[in-house]
Computed example of a mutant assay.
Amino acid sequence: MLLYTTVGTNDLERAGRFYDAVLPLIGYRRQKQAPGEIGYAADEDVRCRFWVVEPFNRELATFGNGVTIAFDAPTRASVDAFHAAALAAGGTDEGAPGLRPFHASFYAAFIRDHDGNKLVAVCERAE
């Protein structure tokens, strides 16, 4: 349904280091970089679906209250690894890995990046 999504950053280099450490653990990697933006995609995807950008209007990047970007993770172990890597890379915990009440197999971990963007890795497979 979604073509792509973006999160803003005030320090693209720092954000790139963070996402380079975290996203490969759930199957996404840096595919493109241009001035002011970095694009990530799953290995099998030819299009970047997640972008980290400096705001086009040159204002400070801010996070959206109530906004969460959810990534599909292949396994519960990859959700655990995503959460641990995010914390090690300077992210903050917004919900440790575990089952959530949304349905019986909804296993997720929530974090915030350096700019306050809220991210979640979710595995919906029973393991």
Rank of each mutant, 00 (worst) to 15 (best):
M1C: 08
L2Y: 13
L3F: 10
L3M: 09
L3C: 09
Y4G: 02
Y4V: 01
T6S: 14
V7W: 04
G8F: 04
T9Y: 02
D11F: 03
R14N: 05
A15P: 04
G16L: 06
F18D: 07
F18W: 06
A21E: 13
A21W: 09
V22D: 03
L23N: 00
P24C: 07
P24T: 09
P24Q: 05
P24I: 04
L25F: 01
L25A: 06
I26K: 02
Y28W: 05
Y28L: 10
Y28N: 00
R29C: 01
R30D: 03
Q31R: 14
K32A: 15
K32W: 13
P35R: 03
P35Q: 08
G36R: 07
E37L: 13
E37A: 14
I38H: 04
I38G: 05
G39E: 05
A41N: 00
A41H: 03
A42S: 05
D43L: 11
E44L: 10
E44R: 13
V46F: 07
R47M: 11
C48P: 08
R49C: 03
W51S: 07
W51E: 04
V52A: 08
V53L: 13
V53P: 08
V53I: 15
P55C: 02
N57L: 10
R58G: 03
E59L: 11
L60W: 08
A61Y: 04
T62K: 14
F63K: 13
N65L: 13
N65M: 10
G66K: 12
G66H: 11
T68A: 12
I69T: 15
I69V: 15
A70K: 06
F71M: 05
F71E: 12
F71V: 07
F71S: 06
A73G: 04
A73F: 02
P74Y: 06
P74A: 11
P74T: 11
T75K: 07
R76E: 08
A77D: 13
A77S: 10
S78I: 04
D80T: 01
D80M: 00
A81D: 13
F82K: 03
F82A: 05
F82D: 03
H83V: 00
A84I: 01
A85Y: 08
A85P: 06
A85C: 11
A85T: 12
L87D: 06
A88S: 12
G90D: 05
G90Y: 05
G91Q: 07
T92A: 11
E94P: 00
E94L: 05
G95D: 00
G95C: 00
A96R: 11
A96G: 04
P97D: 05
L99R: 09
R100M: 05
R100K: 11
F102Y: 15
H103I: 09
F106Q: 07
A108N: 01
A108W: 00
R112M: 07
R112I: 04
D113A: 10
D113Q: 08
H114D: 13
H114E: 14
N117P: 09
N117A: 12
N117Y: 04
K118C: 08
L119Q: 08
A121Y: 01
V122A: 02
C123I: 09
E124Q: 15
A126K: 12
A126C: 07
E127M: 09
